[in-house]
Amino acid sequence: MTLPTATELPIGAVVTEPGSTRRNITAGWRALRPVIHDDRCVRCQLCWMYCPEGTIVELKGVFKVGNRTYDTKYEINYDYCKGCGICANECPTKAIEMVPE
């Protein structure tokens, strides 16, 4: 890929396209991958609140886990998760496991 030259770029490093950071997939930074064990998850939402990158996805619906039914479920957006492990550290039921990539 040929990158633009100094005179082709907007001055002052201004980014003119809103939301272009979404193209910057940061999954490659990750050494450890968080894996949610849904059977241990009590839907407390702490991982969703603590994630510094907003990569915990809260799904709405009807989710049966064993003999319990929940209206939410948490998943991880692995495109942007950098593997910091804050979610696993905060999880009160140890439902998130950090697995080497």
Partner: peptide, 16 residues
């Protein structure tokens, strides 16, 4: 909308 003062990685910084 524009972003000012972003991070520039080694592929970009020198040009600015």
């Amino acid at each position: 909308p524009v972003t000012m003062g972003p991070l520039a990685s080694p592929d970009w910084y020198y040009e600015f």
